[in-house]
């Protein structure tokens, strides 16, 4: 029995291998969340805490009610940003620390499929948290949405996610090259991005050129367009029209996905040439 050869499984190549790798890498992200639901406590409570704090500031300042809605929507989108930063950008670095990176590189699948799997799995898992934050925030503070075009709103959200996770895929390779500094860099950029992407206020409030520069972060334009499409007075606070913002987001998606591929190829070459990329340095 012991000498019997292992039953030959299906051999996947090409796009089938690519797709199966994507599914395999996204699987632990989605299923892991179901198996350990205690993560939800931290993933929901912590962003919700910030949402409540900023809502209270607006209440103390006697701000119009629409700002409460802006904060709730920003808080929900924070979940995606945190996921991209800590579970996409820093992920290859964590994988290296845990010893999985070498296995990924040695396996016959494309590294792009691994990153894409991480992105899809992360997106699905985070979507649930974002929905919970939106529901709780809206119920707690009585936020009212006026959605004229649900299709357009969903389209903006979807393209924002593609661009945002594309950026995460590109950063994953970059952060791997930074080595030990990856953790510090993730930590360092969290709050500045919260600031310039207008998570808690309309991006139009910032000087034009700062808002324009911040538009390289997909969260900025995605959130701005979604606020315009989801609130009655949203169009008054828009930085650009939703149509223009959608076009820019499409361009950003292409840019980040191509950038991710190029940077990943470079990282793999470096791994083969120097043989040091997978060593964990403490």
């Amino acid at each position: 029995m012991d000498n019997q050869p292992v039953a030959e499984g299906k051999k996947y190549t090409g796009w089938r291998l690519f797709w199966h790798s994507v599914v395999a890498r996204s699987y632990p992200r989605v299923i892991g969340q179901q198996r350990d639901t205690s993560w939800m406590l931290f993933d929901v409570i912590m962003p919700l805490g910030s949402v409540i704090a900023y809502v209270m500031v607006y209440r103390a300042l006697k701000a119009p009610d629409q700002y409460v809605g802006f904060v709730v929507m920003g808080g929900a989108m924070t979940a995606f940003w945190m996921n991209v930063l800590w579970s996409m950008s820093s992920q290859l670095y964590w994988e290296k620390e845990q010893g999985n990176l070498a296995l990924y590189i040695m396996a016959p699948n494309s590294m792009m499929s691994i990153l894409l799997g991480m992105a899809l799995g992360g997106m699905v898992a985070t979507l649930l948290r974002a929905v919970v934050i939106t529901l709780l925030g809206s119920l707690l503070f009585g936020v009212q949405y006026v959605v004229a075009s649900p299709f357009e709103l969903f389209g903006v959200f979807a393209i924002s996610m593609v661009a945002l996770y594309g950026m995460g895929m590109m950063f994953a390779s970059a952060f791997l090259l930074f080595g030990r500094e990856a953790w510090a860099i993730s930590d360092m950029v969290t709050e500045p991005v919260n600031l310039v992407s207008g998570l808690y206020f309309p991006i139009k409030s910032l000087p034009f050129w700062i808002a324009a520069a911040a538009s390289i972060i997909p969260l900025t334009l995605g959130l701005d367009a979604m606020r315009q499409l989801a609130f009655a007075s949203g169009f008054k606070i828009g930085f650009l029209t939703p149509r223009v913002e959608i076009l820019i987001l499409v361009a950003l998606s292409v840019f980040f996905l191509v950038g991710a591929k190029l940077l990943l190829d470079y990282t793999e070459k470096l791994a083969i040439r120097e043989g040091r990329l997978t060593e964990a340095r403490r």
Binding site: Y67, E191, F201
Partner: peptide, 29 residues
Amino acid sequence: WTDPFLFAIYSIIRPISRAAILVVMYGVI
């Protein structure tokens, strides 16, 4: 993990950004 200049930036950028968020919120209203 880095040179003193980058470390100084790292140390102050988070609280400065958080303060700036409040400043913008306050300024808008």
